[in-house]
Amino acid sequence: MHLFVSEYGQFIGKKSERLVVSSKGKVVQEIPFRDLTQVTIASRGVSISTDAIEGCIEFGVPVNFLSFNGKPYAMLISPVLNATVTTRREQLKAYDDERGVYLAKAFVAGKIGNQANLVKYFAKHRKEKDIYPTLMANAREIEDLKNQVDAVEGSTVNDVRPYLMNLEGRAAAIYWQDIGEIAVGEEFNGRKHRGAQDPFNACLNYGYGILYNQVWGAILLAGLEPFAGFLHVDRPGKPSLVLDMVEEFRPAAVDRPIVALLSRGWRPKLEEDGGMTRESRREVADAVLTRLDGKERYDGEKRSIKHIIVSQARRVAAYLRGERNYSAFVSSW
């Protein structure tokens, strides 16, 4: 279970082997530590006891902190991870050899493939509408761009990055025009990142913050270094591997539930500063967390997307150690 705390003034404590959430002196939720996978605090004015923190760490439950606009700003996790020295050494070496090239290409191919499949997913529910042929044609165009990723060659990731980013950008231009129209129609005015105040982009950015925490935690548990990526360039304070791995999960884990939510006519309420209200943040969080618990076919079985994220991080680590190949996760449609 992913506990999401978003009420101002709530207190998170510990009672025996349970995490207890209370408000104004009254208990509102009790969850056994063994049933928790993550705790996310997404409001100011929330307190957590050191006993609760210790309990979470003992049971391997990361505690995440989100700002009002969904930006992760802190994470509490045990310093005793499943990391191996070999994994991180190989990760750093891979930046300058063919392994970095392979992973960068896999991340981009996975993202573009999932974008094409999400367009097809929404198209199949609109077969009786005029937009259906256009969506399917655009999905095929996005798939053509994905297929071009294999042809990109280079000795290091620095050689291939410009070409991969070009393909990614061209796919995104087609994808966002389709997805934006499905979600909010004529209200869509382009994809915006920081400081977005329109409903669609505000919801997406908040949802991505939740996804970042999922991926970051999986990377740490796999023994990888979050700040040593391949596709995204290194910058101080920039978790480039987190940003790399997030790419293949954005369409399936966040875009799909947000588009579904907005296409039904729901719109978030915004504060004067452009941020969403607490109630709207909760609505978006519920949609994304429900999707993260949703099942996709993976290795011949139905697995939750949260499980797949953890498995994919471990497979990146195993690939870097030379133990197995790595393939990006691509959702069904």
Rank of each mutant, 00 (worst) to 15 (best):
D159N: 02
D159H: 04
D159C: 03
V160W: 13
V160K: 05
R161E: 10
P162Q: 07
P162M: 11
L164G: 06
M165H: 11
L167M: 09
G169S: 13
R170S: 10
R170Q: 13
A172H: 04
A173I: 09
W176K: 02
W176D: 01
W176P: 15
Q177H: 14
Q177E: 13
D178T: 14
G180S: 08
G180L: 12
I182V: 09
A183G: 05
G185Q: 05
E186W: 07
E187C: 03
F188D: 06
F188E: 00
G190T: 08
K192E: 09
H193M: 12
H193C: 13
R194D: 15
A196K: 03
Q197V: 09
D198N: 04
F200Y: 02
N201G: 05
C203H: 15
C203D: 13
L204P: 06
N205T: 03
N205C: 12
Y206K: 01
Y206G: 04
G207F: 11
G209S: 06
I210R: 00
Y212E: 03
N213S: 11
Q214G: 11
I219E: 01
L220M: 07
L221D: 14
A222C: 09
G223W: 12
G223Q: 07
G223M: 01
L224C: 06
L224G: 02
E225Q: 09
E225V: 08
G229P: 15
F230A: 00
L231A: 01
L231E: 08
H232G: 00
V233D: 13
D234W: 03
D234T: 04
D234H: 04
D234S: 02
D234V: 00
R235C: 11
G237T: 00
K238Y: 03
P239N: 03
V242C: 08
V242Q: 07
E247P: 11
E248G: 05
E248N: 01
F249Q: 04
R250H: 06
R250P: 14
R250D: 00
A252I: 09
P257T: 09
P257I: 08
A260K: 12
A260V: 11
S263F: 13
S263Y: 03
G265P: 13
W266G: 12
W266M: 14
R267K: 14
P268A: 05
E271W: 03
E271N: 07
E271L: 06
E271F: 07
E272R: 00
E272N: 04
G274P: 09
R278W: 15
R278V: 12
R281M: 13
V284W: 05
V284Q: 08
A285K: 07
D286M: 10
A287L: 14
A287I: 13
V288M: 11
L289Q: 04
L289D: 02
T290V: 07
T290W: 14
T290G: 10
R291H: 14
L292W: 05
D293Q: 12
G294H: 11
K295H: 13
K295Q: 11
E296D: 14
E296K: 15
R297N: 06
